[in-house]
């Protein structure tokens, strides 16, 4: 416990346990299934640099949690991001686990 982190907390999903990726997945979780948001709007909302967001999206994509699509709006190239079903499931399980840690009695 030298770093002050509860050992139970470190057992949570390592992909979204990192703060930045948790923020990305949390934001994307408000989208309806099949809705995609543009990269710049997501970046603004999360107040991250484009490079930083790209790195985290790649890790989330590798885990199958998000889907990044490149398309065109007229002649403007657009990058769209959505949370996959797997990502949503992981997010739901993660938040449920956090709540269980806060209120262990409710789980039993």
């Amino acid at each position: 416990m030298s770093d002050g982190i509860d050992p139970q907390v470190t057992e949570l999903d390592p992909v979204i346990h990192a703060q930045a990726r948790l923020r990305v997945v949390s934001a994307l979780s408000v989208l309806r299934e099949d809705d995609r948001v543009t990269f710049p709007r997501l970046q603004d909302s999360l107040r991250m640099t484009a490079g930083n967001l790209s790195v985290h999206l790649r890790k989330l994509e590798d885990a199958g949690y998000v889907e990044v699509t490149k398309t065109h709006h007229g002649r403007t190239p657009t990058t769209l991001v959505r949370l996959t079903r797997r990502g949503r499931l992981a997010f739901d399980e993660y938040t449920a686990a956090l709540r269980a840690l806060l209120n262990p009695l409710e789980e039993s």
């Binding site: 949570l12 703060q19 948790l22 923020r23 949390s26 709007r41 997501l42 999360l46 956090l98």
Partner: peptide, 25 residues
């Protein structure tokens, strides 16, 4: 960014904040 938050309550607050931000945006 890669470090996890230690406190579950803090994590839940962060989740709510980011959700509200994107809804607004």
């Amino acid at each position: 960014d890669d470090l996890p938050l230690g406190d579950p309550a803090e994590s839940l607050a962060l989740i709510q904040r980011e959700r509200a931000n994107l809804v607004r945006d």
